[in-house]
Amino acid sequence: MTTLPDSTDRSLGLVIDLDTCVGCHACVVACKEWNTGAYGAPLSDQDAYGAAPSGTFLNRVHSYEVTPADAPAMVVHFPKSCLHCSDAPCVTVCPTGASYKRVEDGIVLVNESDCIGCGLCAWACPYGAREMDRAAGVMKKCTLCVDRIYNDTLPEEDRVPSCVRTCPAGARHFGDLSDPESSVFQLVEARGGMDLMPEQGTRPVNKYLPPRDRDALPEMDVLGPLLAPVEAQPGGFLGWLDRTLEKL
């Protein structure tokens, strides 16, 4: 059923710390590795060793440069995957009922055996979180590693999404964002977690923690002001040498 639930029991999602992310793309690789062999069709590549390689990824890392008016420019690495929106526009457009948002934990999933590959959900998503797999002809998206987080056969520390487990910088956090007691909820409160494209009205579950302001160094050059400026026009011997050299 492609209508959205009025509310979900939990809101599982990610909190991504833009202050900490170093842009190593380890989460991209870990995501591809886990999800190409797990739930649903594999994440195919096209022309992988040729001139124009492309492929299906559920998580991609962009890099941006932000230039404040009164400070030096800074680089922000920006991982982007499905935000598991509360008002997910991708779900309601689905003509077959393949796309759905789970009532129990809020995860947005695709039932691939019902997907006809029309691509409408990818159009509806403002974030580019859904990609059609060009080999299987079905829509792929982040499952929040639904086959890890409830998987009793895995050690407890591995029961988080693959991208979170692998992040060497600790920039990715996983939890229930509807629970005020959860660490992710408190992290969002403390750091001013934000929504992407709030004007699109999607109410994303995933939050992004903004980069902290860079330290502004105070004026450290105590001797500088006392030194006489170097003369623009050298005089004396140097001046004579300069004029002589110019004549040659």
Binding site: P53, F57, S63, Y64, V66, T67, M197, P210
Partner: peptide
Amino acid sequence: TATGLGDRGVVRPLEPPQTGTNYLLDE
């Protein structure tokens, strides 16, 4: 607004996520 960084200053793409193209760009 897409990155949430617009309040801090001018945002400019520095590096795309991949060297080639992808479904999103083609579509």
